[in-house]
Design a protein around this nucleic acid. Structure first.
Lengths: 254, 254
DNA sequence: CAGTGGTCTAGACCACGGG
DNA sequence: CCGTGGTCTAGACCACTGG
């Protein structure tokens, strides 16, 4: 057992019982406490960051991190605000760009309109408890919500605007989720470093009433901020759900 | 721009055009070539590993890595062999344990039987091109395939056995997918280090004919070996699929 | 300004795997 | 045996944040 591995074990144990946002010992502190050099202390804290237990901010310090569950499932509304709020955290979204442009052909096809149709290209960044956690591009036709720029000044939830103004009830038509190394533009939007692991969630929302596609999104989500869980298929047949049964594999993720 | 960042940029560029499994320059080589110490060279190669572009094996070397797409979708069969083969790679699965035990209550509930019903608890490890990539536990009732231990000696695909012997057509009833830090048992099964990022895929398969649940699995999948993509919902309405459209966000994952 | 994490050097020892 | 990556030390400089 290497020194840093032992330090990781001890610190990971201790961190379980402290609330998110708590300051963690600095590299120098850890080195002193465990009687190791800075390299070993640093390796241990770096490992904790890789395990998404802490965040490290240059010039500030190391802090325990909260990881919010983001459940993607057929029945769940495709709304950042609602999903984060349901997880017990505070969502926030800011508009970085809202341009009226002709829809690219790929997007137009997804939205069921002709290429070149006037559309809104929305770039937004979303936060969890004031920490950047998601960023990406969203597309919709101008015809659906012509007053979108105005509406966004009073209501930051796109889902709420679509419900109130466009009178649609957005639901997931199709979603594709994968983990990637964040490219440069995404890492800039997410406030993380290039190559950091991140989710890419591409999603098409349709109106629950008439099935018409209404919103096409490509969103990057920081994997150290959000634990994305994708549920596929209606699991209405059996008893145990939500929590996995306690038997099969000994250790369960916390 | 730090030295190691520049090295990462150069090497990542070069690695794009070499086939998987190719040997990469050692830490000493990189240090010499770029005129840096071992720490900087090592940091660069470590970053390439974190981005899942290379694998590093102690005592052997650093090699480019192939990452196979594993598509989880409502219409896809829940079979490792078939999914990996479709991706153009070579699957292999070995049985680590096949015990006849009373089904734990949670599993029994998923399989639609009473707790204590005789079941098989199957622990298997799966490979892609002879590299360990998945590991986990699978459960099914003894009644479904009483001769399972025998059958596994001649056919390693559980899906094939279920089709040929039990006369069922397994399909996904429910699947839950998330990324975790591999716990000790999983990392041992996967041949990676504890805390390495890995997928946890919990899945219930049912018979396509009568909808009866047949197989409950909890599988860990190495994220550096497999790019899991979960597709949710029938996306039969529009044109572009498979590849995401080329317009919305500038940089696309390779 | 002091304290934090980010980077780097030079050097050392170790564990591992292949010839 | 040698070369590989894994770990560690001691020390240095830097970039960044906060008071």
């Amino acid at each position: 057992m290497s020194k840093s591995t032992e330090i990781v074990r001890v610190l990971a144990e201790e961190l379980q019982s402290v609330p998110p946002g708590t300051r963690v010992a600095s590299e120098a502190d850890v080195g002193q406490r465990f009687g190791v050099g800075r390299a070993a202390a640093r390796a241990a804290l770096g490992e904790l960051e890789r395990r998404m237990l802490v965040s490290r901010i240059q010039g500030v310090g190391t802090f325990t991190r909260r990881r919010v569950d983001y459940l993607v499932a057929p029945g769940k509304a495709p709304s950042w605000s609602r999903t984060i709020r349901e997880a017990g955290a505070t969502p926030r979204t800011v508009v970085l760009a809202c341009d009226e442009v002709p829809l690219p052909s790929g997007v137009a096809a997804e939205l069921g309109t002709g290429p070149g149709e006037p559309g809104f290209r929305l770039v937004r960044r979303s936060f969890i408890d004031d920490m950047p956690a998601a960023w990406g591009v969203e597309w919709l036709t101008v015809a659906l919500v012509p007053e979108l720029p105005t509406a966004l000044r009073h209501e930051e939830s796109l889902d709420a605007i679509l419900r109130a103004v466009a009178r649609v009830r957005p639901e997931r038509a199709w979603t594709r989720s994968s983990m990637e190394s964040a490219p440069d533009d995404a890492s800039a939007g997410l406030g993380c470093r290039p190559g950091d692991p991140a989710w890419l969630i591409v999603s098409l929302a349709r109106d629950g009433a008439d099935g018409r596609p209404v919103l096409f999104t490509e969103r990057w989500v920081r994997s150290d901020a959000v634990r994305v869980i994708v549920e596929l298929g209606a699991h209405g047949t059996t008893a145990a759900r939500g929590a996995t049964p306690g038997g099969p594999v000994s250790s369960r993720p916390t």
